[in-house]
Amino acid sequence: MILFDGVLALLIVVLAWRCVTAGDLYLGIVVFIVMGLMLALSWARLDAPDLALAEAAIGAGLLGVLLLSTWRALPGHRRQDRDHPPARKAVRWLAGVASVAFGLVMAALLHALQPDEDAAGALALGRLTEAGVEQPVTAVLLNFRSYDTLLEMGVLLMALIGALLARTPLAPYGAATDDGTDSPLIPVLATTFTPLLLLVGAFLVWAGAYGPGGAFQGGAVLGGAGVVLVLCNRLQGAPEAGILLRLLLVLGVKVFILAGLLMLPLEGAFMAYPPGLTYPIMIAIEFCLATSIAVSLLLLFTGTHGVRVPER
């Protein structure tokens, strides 16, 4: 396996090199997506299957879609480097030397650092039975450090609002309208893959309680199903968000805060859950988070305030 690991690590480094130096921007984006998938593979090798799923679904999949759709939206002459040439040769050399030095120092540090005996994770693993879920990462995200996750949902919402504000003065970005949409593959893609994607997404959220999976991975897959529908012209961006969509967007944050507040008189602390109810509360929060994440990611893709079914 050492050979496999070595080849994988080498592949990641080469892809990262191509990604930052590729002559063509489009090539750079495609290489970035491939690198994300290779990273997912390497993280699966490094005992982190949850993160491998998240990287494949979010880091490579959805981020790749966002990058490609932005590239496509740029006017043709802005897609190249003419207006933004790379830095001068002297700067490039200086940056090269500095990054090599930085990389060597980091490699030496990573090699020399010793594990810490009292890692907080040992505490988390030791008290896993109190968390209500068997999967340690989900337990940390939704119970032991739920405050972080709540704020993270806030960041996602703020990023969405920011992106929508930045885009609003421009023409809203609707569904793809080019010739590709009447390909015979489109109906198959929309009718066969979307239900499967929804099923896989829901399963990943559910699986987060006892195995690799969770709200973020599942939510990303559900959002991906929405992206497929938009690309197949079964959904399109709408300038206004309906009340239902707004509710779905804030559902995760709201249910999270409510669950924390409602248990306050019972347990005496924000986000402390009574022992018997922990499991149902975890599952409820997880599904609400996944829904909000899916809708937020879909709207980040369409760049519009809402989505609707196109009139036929």
């Binding site: 050492i2 690991d5 690590a9 080498l10 990262a16 930085f102 980091m106 490699a107 090699h111």
Partner: peptide, 13 residues
Amino acid sequence: DPFALAAAALLAL
């Protein structure tokens, strides 16, 4: 570890 070297290389790149 090859992955430690890859992590350092990613940071540098």
